[in-house]
Write a protein that binds this DNA or RNA. Structure first.
Length: 527
RNA sequence: GUCCCUAUCGUCCAGAGGCCUAGGACUCCGGGUUUUCAUCCCGGCAACAGGGGUUCGAAUCCCCUUAGGGAUGCCA
């Protein structure tokens, strides 16, 4: 078997989208699993919309996710002349033609008329259709047009390439044959005659379909009479996606094309172009789409679907990689799958062929698991850049180190570190409801101030002594032991949850804890 | 309108005609551990879109309907 070569071929016309990057991930895994090559091709043919910023963002995303590619990236715009040469050769061989419509002239790929020479085309059956009397049947160099009759008697316009209507015969109301396409084909495509039939009543033809085998979706087919000739060179003279994409895949010697579902329709056409060029088609695998919570495909307008956003929101690359990987593919019952295992186990045939919905809650939760599994140093180096941006951060790296290991298991998103402020300075509580709930009881002020007195006499670094002191203070105030813990925490940290209370108090320090306790008790407890 | 594709718990994934009383994970709910919170442990709710076939037997194969997505000549 020849070498596996796959590519990720995004167009740099904006931020990298979650669906795009998943295609990259699957290409990457497939290549690494097969011991093949994973290439990057930047499809920047659309000069109006392609930007350098988008290219930079793209490269950054790939690096972040660890999608290392082989060989030098190919920029499609550098291949333009080659694409045009190919278009010319297709034209010379009769597979393409120039076509004028209004002021515009384009080059179109002509669907093959010699159907029997194409292994990807199969004969289906004989078809018959009634023509609508008000609409003429037209045949010119561009194809066949007519209208059939809907159930309600309305005209239903149909338009397709010549090849779709191979063996076309037109009959009048008396059943007499008044036109056949096969014997007029040459003069029609040479523009020597245009056909316009107004008295046709019925047509018959032989239906043929284009077939290709998709590794994920299985055998796919589409009738030729639902396809039109395809623009390959725009009226401004530049090659269109269809041509450029195929030419570059041939140039880069791709063995498999793994791309989004939305390309299936293109592929029916692409296999014909490969055949016309005398090239072997690569193996195709079409990935299902990723949809949002509303079940709609992510569009460029869905702001939160950009890869870069996940990074700034505090998700780890490993988590996003894992999540995206398991959206549409699974190695079994495991919820988590490391990059190494994924490379080892990846099978294109096992990719689901149905759309998958992105669940942000699940991603959030998974990220928490990933953070929890990091060791303290790894976690610290991940949060540090975020913490250093906060206005309250005073540069105390030693404190940050302790805080981060204390909070690691409680953090699901790196950006949650923003709430660690209380370790660094006094934060006054602001949630009225919580203040009332926790500090609103009668006698709370006295109890807390009394507690501050007791705490002043003990060693904060001895956690059992600290615990005992809190118990005693509660009893002194006539409360059950432990009942003062929550109010003390709230006064010192302004939070109603967090790391172990003794650890927290020890870390904040005796002097500072007592100061805050007094300050907030005075200020927020009822008189 | 026409053509293509798809349909299993709220979500992701398992299921290749009998291992299915449909399994796992996340969420959610209940309980335990933690004198808070999180972690952890135990338990619970919850699905084969509908209708016809084929078969001794269907989530699985076929047909129809419905629903969703995509395409429908110069985006990629």
């Amino acid at each position: 078997m020849s070498e596996v070569r796959v590519r990720f071929a995004p167009s740099p016309t904006g931020n990298v989208h979650i669906g795009n990057i998943r295609a990259a991930i699957f290409n990457y895994l497939f290549a690494r699993n097969m011991g093949g090559k994973f290439l990057l091709r930047v499809e920047d043919t659309d000069k109006e919309r392609s930007t350098q910023e988008a290219v930079d963002a793209l490269l950054e995303c790939m690096e972040w996710l660890g999608l290392d590619y082989d060989e030098t990236p190919l920029y499609q715009s550098t291949q333009e002349q080659h694409h045009l040469d190919i278009a010319k050769s297709l034209q010379d061989k009769g597979h393409a033609y120039r076509f004028v419509k209004g002021e515009n002239e384009v080059t179109l790929f002509r669907m093959p008329w010699d159907l029997e020479n194409y292994s990807c085309i199969r004969k289906i059956d004989q078809q018959e259709l009634a023509l609508h009397a008000d609409v003429a049947l037209e045949v010119d160099a561009g194809g066949v047009r007519f209208a059939t009759i809907s159930r309600k008697g309305k005209a239903v316009p149909m338009e397709a390439c010549h090849a779709g209507y191979k063996d076309l015969k037109v009959f009048d109301a008396d059943g007499k044959e008044i036109f056949d396409l096969n014997s007029n084909y040459e003069s029609i495509i040479n523009d020597e005659q245009n056909v316009n039939i107004t008295d046709g009543s019925k047509i018959t033809w032989t239906r043929h379909s284009v077939f290709f085998n998709d590794i994920i979706k299985g055998e796919l087919s589409k009738p030729l009479d639902s396809m039109k000739d395809l623009v390959i060179v725009k009226s401004n003279g530049s090659p269109l996606f269809h041509l450029a994409n195929i030419c570059d895949d041939i140039t880069q010697n791709m063995s498999h094309i793994i791309r989004g579902d939305d390309h299936v329709e293109n592929t029916y056409r692409h296999v014909l172009i490969y055949a016309a060029l005398g090239e072997k088609t690569p193996q195709y695998a079409h990935l299902p789409m990723i949809v949002n919570k509303q079940g709609k495909p992510y569009s460029k307008r869905d702001g939160d679907a950009f890869v870069g956003d996940f990074r700034t929101k505090g998700y780890t690359a490993e988590c996003l990689f894992n999540y995206l990987l398991l959206l549409g593919w699974s190695p079994g019952d495991e919820e988590k799958c490391s990059r190494e295992d994924a490379i080892k186990l990846f099978q294109l045939e096992k990719v689901k062929s149905t759309a998958a919905q992105m669940d942000m809650d699940k991603l959030f939760n998974l990220n928490g698991q990933y953070l929890d599994e990091l060791n303290d140093e790894e976690f610290l180096s991940l949060v540090s850049p975020f913490v250093k941006e906060y206005s309250w951060y005073n540069g105390d790296e030693k404190l940050l180190k302790t805080v981060s290991s204390l909070m690691k298991s409680r953090t699901k998103l790196v950006t949650q570190s923003e709430t660690w402020e209380y370790y660094f300075q006094l934060v006054e509580p602001s949630d009225e409801k919580l203040i009332k709930k926790i500090l609103g009881k009668e006698g709370m002020k006295e109890a807390l101030l009394g507690c501050a007195e007791t705490l002043a006499t003990i060693d904060f670094n001895n956690s059992s002594e600290l615990e005992q002191a809190l118990k005693t203070s509660a009893e002194n105030a006539g409360l059950n032991p432990g009942k003062l813990n929550q109010p003390v925490r709230f006064c010192v940290t302004s939070a109603n949850g967090g790391a172990d209370l003794m650890d927290t108090l020890a870390l904040i320090g005796k002097e500072e804890s007592i100061k805050r306790l007094k300050h907030n008790a005075e200020k927020f407890c009822l008189a």
